[in-house]
């Protein structure tokens, strides 16, 4: 079975102090650490586990500039068989639609029984690439997927609804599955595993290699445009309890007691 996994290289913003850049249309990223998008770590693990069960080949792919090579190499260390970086200066400024178009073109040109993505990227919080790629390839898809099982060219899985409710669905292959976090336990990557793949080549495919037109990618190929970015004002809302941790904790205990936050 040929499995293609889409991997996004994202800045880690969950604990970082963010500032908007001069143009006011993006955040400053020079001081941020970049890593594999959280959801995608589960996607690459699922791909490798499926391969280990039913056999086949796993290809990791990222639309990302040079710096992302380390992430793709980590995919190889995690058990992917090959990895491709798709990048061209013309890709700069692509929105979700343009990125999906690049990925769909890459996937269309090679064997694919299953395409895996994460459900959401932590940078754009879009949750759109999986569904768009499926529509562009004209194959079925689903997001928030767990418990994936494959036999005789048929796939069954769970997809998460609200309130702990799931639906069980089946699909014909090929299909695009956008995985939910927690559907597996991503493996630990040993130094040995990293060393083993150090010499493997990770080809970069550019606009021409993919047979794409410049007008279909980058800001020209995008359907939405960022006009403005701003940080909501700090502390709007909560009253911050000051003092050293112990002092603040003591004050909080008093507040909780007063407001009925201490039950029996």
């Amino acid at each position: 079975m040929d499995i293609i996994v889409c991997m996004k290289w994202t800045p880690d913003t969950s604990e970082a102090d963010l500032t908007v850049d001069k143009e006011g249309k993006d955040i400053r990223k020079d001081d941020l650490d970049f890593d594999m998008n959280d959801w995608d770590r589960f996607a690459i693990e699922e791909a490798v586990q499926l391969k280990e069960k039913v056999g086949g080949k796993v290809t990791a792919v990222a639309v990302a500039p040079e710096d992302a090579e380390g992430m793709l190499r980590e995919c190889l260390a995690r058990g992917a068989d090959e990895a491709y970086q798709l990048w061209d200066d013309a890709f700069e400024g692509s929105d979700g639609y343009a990125v999906a178009a690049i990925l769909a073109k890459f996937i269309k040109d090679r064997p694919h029984d299953l395409v895996l993505t994460g459900t959401l990227a932590d940078d754009d919080c879009g949750g759109q690439i999986g569904g768009m790629v499926a529509a562009m390839l004209d194959i079925p898809g689903s997001t928030l997927v767990s418990k994936i099982q494959i036999s005789d060219g048929k796939l069954t899985c769970h997809r998460e609804l609200e309130g702990g409710l799931y639906e069980s669905i089946e699909m014909d292959l090929p299909a695009v599955l956008s995985v939910a976090t927690g559907l597996n336990e991503p493996r630990f990557v040993s130094v040995r595993a990293v060393r083993k793949v150090a010499a493997l080549e990770i080809p970069t495919l550019e606009l021409g290699d993919l047979g794409l037109e410049a007008s279909a990618v980058g800001s020209d190929g995008s359907r939405i445009r960022i006009e403005l970015m701003e940080l909501p004002p700090e502390g709007e809302g909560a009253e911050i309890i000051t003092g050293k941790a112990e002092e603040a904790a003591a004050k909080l205990a008093e507040i909780l007691k007063e407001k009925g936050g201490i039950g029996s």
Partner: peptide, 10 residues
């Protein structure tokens, strides 16, 4: 965007 920490007008 960005861990839901930044407001963006598109």
């Amino acid at each position: 965007m960005y861990s839901y920490k930044v407001n963006t007008l598109v």
